[in-house]
């Protein structure tokens, strides 16, 4: 019975997907034909901000202050988790014996860990040129730490240096905003030379802000992962 219901649900879902996606012209530029607000950003974003990825130009410049708020919310969530899980007395660890990972998994995780961190760095440094950005790159870095946790139990995340990295990244973000206020006219305004379009050094302050966001999000999410795993009931 359960199998029958799930089959019917699957067929309905797939039919719905097919009918919904049939109308969407993938890959074509539809927004030029209509008079929509998105058109302004698509046409003007590149020359105003110098970022090839329009989403990035919106997230970091047009609503950069909002992004600061989002990062702060994530920070507060991490603090809240730490406060809930923190306890003065030593919690008794897991009565049942845990199965440790096999040698192959341990070695593989240790081998892959720096490569995945490098890939996360690549994603957030190229945030103004390709899809992705600070949040996505930070999530990839945090998942690298999760892999380290799954692979070898004896490796601990250095929480102190994590907190240092996180605070430094936050200070850099706010400092760039204040520098824009000093040299320009508004908070988070671009005060660096624009550089050549489609190159790594373009978009003024956008790459720097995204590096700061990437490290901040990565450190926060790794801290959340560590908090959830260390406190295994």
């Amino acid at each position: 019975m359960r199998i029958l219901i799930s089959c019917v649900l699957l067929v309905i879902l797939s039919l719905g997907l097919v009918f919904a996606l049939e109308q969407a012209p993938f890959g074509s530029n539809q927004i030029d034909n209509a008079d929509k607000p998105g058109r302004f950003y698509l046409n003007q974003g590149m020359e105003k901000t110098g970022a090839a990825n329009v989403v990035t130009s919106v997230v970091v410049t047009y609503r950069g202050f909002d992004t600061l708020g989002e990062v702060t919310i994530l920070f507060i969530a991490a603090i809240g988790l730490g406060a809930v899980f923190h306890s003065r007395k030593k919690v008794k660890r897991y009565e049942k014996e845990k199965q440790s990972a096999s040698l192959i998994l341990q070695t593989g995780c240790r081998f892959l860990f720096p490569l995945i961190v490098l890939f996360g760095t690549y994603v957030f440094i190229h945030g103004h040129l390709s899809p992705g950005g600070g949040f996505q790159g930070g999530v990839i870095i945090a998942s690298a730490f999760l892999l380290l946790f799954l692979g070898c139990e004896e490796k601990k995340i250095p929480m102190k240096s994590m907190n240092t990295v996180e605070s430094l990244a936050g200070i850099i973000f706010v400092g760039i905003g204040l520098a824009g206020l000093y040299w320009g006219e508004s908070f988070l305004e671009n005060f660096l030379p624009r550089g050549m379009d489609y190159m790594l050094l373009s978009g003024g302050v956008i790459p720097i802000i995204y590096i700061a966001i990437g490290f901040k999000v990565g450190a926060e999410l790794a801290g959340i992962v560590a908090g959830l795993i260390e406190r295994n009931p």
């Binding site: 860990f113 720096p114 490098l118 890939f119 790594l200």
Partner: peptide, 29 residues
């Protein structure tokens, strides 16, 4: 391989980032 170009900006950034990352992460090897 990720950037698949030989432009000097990408190369400099790559060398710098690899240096920093391998300084901190070489413990896992």
């Amino acid at each position: 391989a990720l950037t698949s170009t030989l432009h000097w900006q990408e190369l400099t950034a790559g060398v710098l980032i690899s240096f920093i990352l391998s300084l901190f992460l070489s413990k896992s090897y």
